[in-house]
């Protein structure tokens, strides 16, 4: 099958590649670009481990073809840290609140949470739970992920994070 030339901006850098039309975006990111932080967990668009940010949308990169992302601007987990290399508020929140265990869902979870906080900077717990409902975590039971996102929201909003009483 003839290959197609694609160009896109990934984590701020212009990238290009030759792909088959059927090449899934997740494989282009992981294999062509060698950005392996984006994971594959279910392949049926349920688990969200492959979530990346594409032109301001959280998308499951296992259910979109690389050719569809022609000209798009994409952020993967490798592009989330602050410019000075320190952890972003969300990355720090996940660490501080123990929002991860095996780490496999974490990149997708953080990318999704980042977009959620951009759209809703002060979400309630219910809004957070709805907001990450396209991402499955098998280890944490979500409770500490919710706290991690609350921690990040507080930090971004410049207020002290107050952990809810049990």
């Amino acid at each position: 099958m003839a290959k197609t030339h694609v160009t896109m901006k990934v984590n701020g850098a212009e990238v290009e590649g030759l792909v088959e039309p059927r090449t899934l975006l997740v494989h282009f990111i992981r294999e062509n670009l060698q950005l392996t932080g984006t994971h594959i967990g279910c392949e049926t668009t349920h688990c969200g481990a492959c979530t990346v940010d594409l032109d301001g949308m959280s998308v499951k990169s296992c259910t979109i073809f690389a050719v569809q992302a022609e000209g798009a601007s994409i952020t993967t987990i490798e592009g989330v840290a602050n410019a000075d290399g320190t952890l972003s508020a969300l990355q720090e929140g996940f660490r501080m609140m123990h929002g991860l265990q095996c780490g496999f869902c974490t990149p997708g979870m953080i990318l999704r949470a980042q977009r959620l906080l951009q759209e809703n900077p002060s979400p309630t717990e219910a809004e957070i739970r709805m907001g990450i409902s396209g991402n499955i975590c098998r280890c944490t039971g979500y409770q500490n992920i919710v706290k991690a996102i609350q921690y990040a929201a507080a930090k971004i909003n410049g207020v002290q994070y107050q952990e809810a009483a049990e």
């Binding site: 969200g48 949308m57 959280s58 998308v59 907001g131 396209g134």
Partner: peptide, 9 residues
């Protein structure tokens, strides 16, 4: 319908 990511697409 579905979940947030699916609703973007």
């Amino acid at each position: 319908i579905a979940d947030p990511q699916v609703r973007y697409m």
